[in-house]
Nucleic acid binder design. Structure first.
Length: 420
RNA sequence: GUGAGUGUAGCUCAGUCGGUUAGAGCACCAGAUUGUGGUUCUGGGGGUCGCGGGUUCGAGUCCCGUCACUCACCCCA
């Protein structure tokens, strides 16, 4: 398990802050769904035969009850939506979340058992402009962090788009793929032969060169879309163009979760290699109905913070981030002034400043080193001579200037020194 | 779940053919200045060599097991 340590918090706050700002800009409101759900919620929504449900859930069984840590955010969000009765009062809801997800698998670069996702779920409409808006929001998130757009040579961020059609389209497509593969399936790799049985569409994703040759000329899902779904897909692309957003149709995108319909998309940073997808999402027009509500359209995405941070690190975009230190470091010349140090800190805090004191018994020189290393802009020195006069020394570290100020004026003087 | 790799100081790592007291750089602490930071110099502290077992006169080094982490596959954020 990986912890987020204080040194990394500025980077995380930047991701969270960017996510919130952009989501709010599109009218999304934050929701914090439960981390623990009934296992049945995920088997019903994500799908019985998906990898997530079959082998990646952390599940706790107590008697007849079975609960699982959420492996993704959409199911819980829709469950919360229905439980809050939004579908009766105000069915159109734009909701976003930032929080941990859990999948039991072998960790590797960009993949962890506990990871954080920023996701949005727009429930209550099938308007294709919302698909485009969501894609633009996701891409805008990465751009706001400084990740460049695709440059056509494998650098930058790529938007890949596809449509999976609706249930009927997909059934016809699956039959066509099966018919296409049947004559050559014996020549495919072992893995593909087993995939052919349970999910022939996955054969098309195989990276084996021989299999790819055999897959050339395979039917494309886009050719099997109903007129209505085709129109929806075209409208999404037109809206993306209206937003000035380039996208590439990638017939290979077949989202792994059962609830997806029509629009599916991924955002990739190809230089990351095997694990290049930074964001995945799409439309799930029947999930609300499948979970017991009315048949409402919905679209959403999820962005992984782990891989986002990986990209930012690779691009050197995290270097300058540092936590803000306390305004004042209070140094005491000897142990007799220890109590005064605490009092002075309290006075400064009442004056609206942050302040810290030495608690390791350091000498004055060492306290200055600490103040310097901690990048505290101001140091207050408590000495016996000043104490006798009811005063303290106030030093501005960057300027190297120091002067004596009466105790009673310290907070005001410190504020003034900081402000200038 | 499958395959491979790596575990030595806080961090990055060296450690010969198995041989005495396990090293370096950085970081940390102290002094050089008995009331003042960043540079410099000098000195210092710190390691059950992941853990357990085995071989051996002797194991950081070889063997077995185990745990953790990393990378890849599967799949995905």
């Amino acid at each position: 398990m990986r912890d987020v340590l204080p040194e990394q918090i500025p980077a995380w706050e930047r991701l969270e802050g960017t996510a919130r700002r952009l989501a709010h800009g599109c009218g999304y409101r934050e929701i914090r769904p439960a981390l623990l759900e009934e296992t049945r919620l995920f088997t019903r929504s994500v799908g019985e035969v998906t990898d997530i449900v079959q082998k990646e859930m952390f599940t706790l069984v107590r008697g007849d009850d079975s609960f699982s840590l959420r492996p993704e955010g959409t199911a819980g969000t829709v469950r919360a939506y229905l439980e809050a009765q939004y579908h009766k009062q105000a069915p159109f809801q734009k909701l976003y979340y930032i929080g941990p997800m859990f999948r039991y698998e072998r960790p590797q670069k960009g993949r962890e058992r506990m990871f954080t996702q920023f996701g949005v779920e727009c429930i209550g409409s099938t308007d294709p402009r919302l698909d485009a808006e969501a894609i633009d929001l996701a891409a805008g998130f990465f751009e706001a962090l400084g990740i460049p757009r695709a440059d056509g040579r494998g650098g930058g961020l790529e938007v890949r788009l596809n449509s999976m059609g609706d249930g009927a389209d997909r059934d016809r497509y699956r039959d066509a793929v099966r018919a296409f593969l049947l004559p050559t399936i014996a020549e495919h790799c072992e893995l593909c032969r087993s995939r052919f049985e349970k999910n022939p569409l996955r054969v098309l994703d195989c990276k084996n060169p021989r299999c790819q040759e055999l897959n050339a000329g395979a039917p494309r899902i886009l050719d099997f879309l109903s007129a209505e779904n085709r129109a929806h897909f075209d409208a999404v692309r037109a809206s993306l163009a209206d937003l000035g957003r380039d996208s590439r149709v990638d017939a290979g995108i077949v989202r792994g979760l059962d609830y997806y319909t029509r629009t599916v998309f991924e955002l990739h940073y190809p230089k990351l290699g095997a694990r290049s997808a930074l964001c995945g999402g799409g439309r799930y027009d029947h999930l609300v109905r499948d979970l017991g509500g009315p048949d409402l359209g919905a679209v959403g995405f999820a962005i992984g913070f782990t891989s986002t941070l990986l990209v930012l690190e690779e691009l050197g975009l995290l270097g300058e981030l540092a936590a803000k230190p306390a305004d004042v470091y209070v140094a005491a010349l000897d142990a007799a002034l220890a109590r005064e140090a605490l009092q002075v800190c309290a006075e400064l805090r009442r004056g609206g400043l942050s302040a810290v004191f030495d608690a390791e018994g350091r000498g004055l020189k060492s306290q200055f080193k600490q103040a310097d290393k901690g990048r505290h802009p101001l140091v207050v020195v408590l000495g016996p001579d000043e104490h006798a006069r009811g005063a303290v020394q106030l030093k501005h570290m960057a300027r190297g200037e120091q002067r004596e100020v009466p105790r009673g004026e310290l907070a005001a003087a410190a504020r003034a020194a900081l402000g200038s």
